[in-house]
Each structure stands twice: as C-alpha cells, then as structure tokens.
C-alpha cells in the first residue's frame, strides 16, 4: 500500500513537471505595466514618454506592440505621377482603409526571425501584417500596391506614428524571472483614443504567452472645448474666429495709431 502511494505521488509529480514544460504556464508569468495609462492632451501637450515594463521568462524572446485598441481609420491620400513627361502632379485620390492610428513594434530579435508569416499576420505583428490589412481603393495592381504600401509606411514613419525596431528592449536577469523595460516616445501626432500595449513571449517559433495593458489618450481643458466647438458648433466657432481676428487687427491698428506711425 505504501509502495503504491509513493508510486502514484511520483507519477503525479512527473506529470505535473511534464505539463509545465509543455504549456505556457510553465514559464515565469508574463506581465506588463505601462507607467502612463491615461495621457491628457492639454494646452502644453507635446507627446509623452511611456515606459512599458514587466516580468518574463528567461528563455523567451519578446515582441512589444502598441496600436489603436478600437476601430482603425480611413485616410484620403493623393498619388503623384508624371504628367506631360516631366511634371510631378497629384493624379489620383486614393482611400486607404483599416489604417492603425499608431503602430509601434519593439522586439528582442527581428520579428521575421521569431515567427512565420502566418503567425505574424494572425497577430498583426510587423509592417507586413499592417500592409496586408490595408485596403486601397481604387484597387491598384500588385506591383503598384507594393510601391504604394511602402510609401504609405514611410509617410507614417515621417509623421512619427509608425516605427519598428529591434533591440530596444532592456532585459535584466532576476531569480524570480527576467524583468524587461522599453520606453516609447508617445507622439503628439497620435489622436485621442484607446490604445493597447501588448507583449508577446515567443519560444521556438511560437507565441507562448501574451499580456496586454491599455493606454487612453484624451483631450482636456481648452483643447477639448475648442475641438468640440469646431466640430459640433461650427457656425459659432467660425463667427468667433472671425470676430476675434477683426478685433485683433483693429486693436493693433489702434496701438500703432497711438504710437504715432505718421
């Protein structure tokens, strides 16, 4: 009886150890924490610095992604081409759908080395996945689509709202599991909305764990008041803008009159 009990306990222990090795829960728990979860756009707002940190297993690679949590936008773009042989003109208006307002990727190794294209696409990781999800109308040919998408990503990068980099994640060994940290320069160009910061733990070409933290960006104070007024009370906003400009023009004129420009 005693022999049987020892055997059962040993078997259960071995099974637990095996299961732990085979499933994500075997890894040290993946956590994520953003230091600024609520970014306020006030009058002096010039972007923010968002530090993302957490714990991870020592044996995994990490991919960190920031993107809009809610629906992606639609943008109108102009395509340039040569006219009359030598003049560069806007020749066509394009509508690009499913555009993420913000798209940042940081990883410990190039994402293409960590996951196969199908997994990258399924999880929306990397520029190729973003390009895949973009819809362009009128629909261009395959070659032109490739060129347009490359230019679209460059345009977004120049506006500081897209970036993808390798090696900017600092990892510190810790007996309880590694700690990681990366700092994102949150651009002022990112519009108000809900964003998600996601960390993926990758091991042997597979995502073995994932954690997410929300970041909300919202307008406050006079910025919110003026934006709301411009959108929802346009007639009053336009009249006030004109009235104040006229007053300012006359005001300065009166000051100079007093100063004696004659």
């Amino acid at each position: 009886m005693r022999y049987r009990l020892t055997t059962i306990i040993t078997l259960l222990t071995l099974m637990a150890a095996g299961a732990a090795f085979l499933t994500p829960s075997a890894l040290a728990a993946l956590t994520i924490e953003a230091n600024h979860k609520d970014i306020r756009m006030n009058l002096t707002y010039h972007g923010s610095s968002v530090s993302v940190s957490g714990m991870s297993d020592p044996n995994v690679d990490l991919i960190l992604k920031i993107t809009a949590a809610s629906g992606n936008a639609e943008e109108k773009m102009m395509r340039k081409d040569r006219e009359a042989g030598f003049l560069w003109m806007n020749v066509e208006q394009l509508t690009v759908k499913n555009v993420p307002a913000l798209y940042f990727i940081r990883s410990t190794k190039p994402v293409a080395d960590l996951l196969d294209p199908a997994q990258l696409k399924a999880n929306g990781i990397g520029y190729a996945a973003v390009e895949d999800s973009l819809e362009i109308t009128p629909t261009p040919g395959p070659e032109q689509r490739e060129k347009l998408l490359a230019d679209f990503i460059k345009y977004k990068e120049s506006g500081a709202v897209y970036s993808q980099s390798v090696g900017d994640v600092e990892i510190k060994p810790d007996p309880a599991g590694d700690t990681y940290e990366t700092v994102f320069n949150w651009p002022y160009q990112a519009p108000p909305g809900d964003y998600a910061v996601t960390v993926y733990a990758v091991k042997e070409d597979k995502i073995v764990d994932k954690a997410e933290s929300p970041v909300t960006v919202e307008e406050t104070g006079i910025v919110k008041t003026l934006d709301n007024m411009a959108q929802n009370n346009a007639a009053l906003y336009g009249t006030a803008a004109i009235g104040i400009s006229l007053t300012a023009g006359f005001g300065v004129g009166m000051i100079f009159k007093g100063g004696g420009s004659h």
Partner: peptide, 15 residues
C-alpha cells in the same frame, strides 16, 4: 517642386 522627383509618391489629400 514640380520637376524634381518627390521622395514619396503618396501624400495627404487636400493639400
């Protein structure tokens, strides 16, 4: 601007 090849062949509409 019209004759030099632009860096990007895509730009925002309404510009």
């Amino acid at each position: 601007d019209l004759t030099l090849t632009p860096d990007l062949l895509l730009g925002p509409a309404g510009g």
